[in-house]
């Protein structure tokens, strides 16, 4: 069996450092397997989040060799074998312990966003008719597993720490999902411009690059939302149309 050298950040809000571990790696090992092995054999109290181990829950986000990744979907044999593999917590959020960060801010932001509100049902049984074609656009955004890797990489949060006025790519994806839902009547454009601060995004597309679900965050969510903001800000008519459309049919 092969071994690999891992450098794992350990510590808490008071500080910490990279600890070095030699780990046996089985065939097909992902980084999370190695972390579990360290936990079982060398550091029982090593803190890490995970649930599904199949890229479905978005719990195991970390920075592997400096890039934001899901540990459960990152194969060890695809990382350079000649140097140690570093595993660190997401930098954009405060550390709780070791690889675990405090992501509660994301939950607060989401709760502040105007909720989904459907138009009246099309059918007596309370259901709506929707075309597959119309549904597919928002379905892309609904693939989001809330791993917050896009939040981690976005410079507005990571470097400028504008958490108080910028909701971050995850939440633009969330808003886009509702705005493009064929039966939603809510209007979140003013909110996007003000509280959610979409104007701070300068379309670097870093978020799209790290999204493990392959959501085209910038092109498909952020840019169309920015367009809506522009339309509404400069075009009161567009706003009126949306309002009328929202209440009707």
């Amino acid at each position: 069996m092969k071994t690999a050298t891992f450098k794992v950040w350990q510590g808490n809000s008071d500080g910490g450092e990279l600890e070095t571990y030699e780990v046996e790696v089985d065939q097909g090992y992902v980084v999370l397997d190695a972390i579990h092995r360290i936990q079982a054999e060398q550091a029982n109290d090593l803190a890490v989040r995970w649930n599904c181990k199949a890229g479905k829950c978005g719990s195991c986000s970390a920075e592997v060799n400096g890039s934001p990744k899901l540990m459960c979907m990152t194969r060890v044999d695809e990382l350079p074998a000649d140097k140690p593999i570093t595993v660190e917590p997401m930098r954009t959020f405060p550390v709780v312990k070791d690889l675990v960060t405090d992501v509660s801010w994301n939950y607060e932001v989401k709760a502040s966003i105007k909720r989904f509100s459907p138009k009246t049902a099309d059918h007596e049984d309370g259901s709506w008719s929707m075309d597959q074609y119309d549904v597919e656009r928002p379905q892309e955004f609904r693939k989001c597993i809330e791993c917050f890797l896009c939040q981690d990489v976005c410079h507005v949060l990571r470097d400028h720490q504008l958490h108080d006025r910028f909701a971050g790519p995850r939440h633009y994806v969330y808003v886009a999902n509702m705005e493009m839902n064929p039966i939603d009547t809510g209007d979140r454009v003013a909110e996007l411009r003000e509280e959610l601060g979409i104007g701070y995004c300068n379309i670097t597309k870093c978020c799209t690059k790290v999204c493990p679900e392959g959501i085209t965050i910038t092109d498909n969510a952020i840019i169309p939302l920015k367009e809506r903001v522009v339309d509404q800000s400069y075009d009161p008519l567009a706003r009126l149309i949306k309002l009328v459309k929202g209440t009707g049919d």
Binding site: M130, D131, Q132, R142
Partner: peptide
């Protein structure tokens, strides 16, 4: 069905159901 009123979007039949 109630889930769609809360924002779920299931795959559709050709009739949109």
């Amino acid at each position: 069905r109630e889930l769609e009123g809360w924002g779920a979007l299931m795959d559709r039949t050709p009739d949109g159901l």
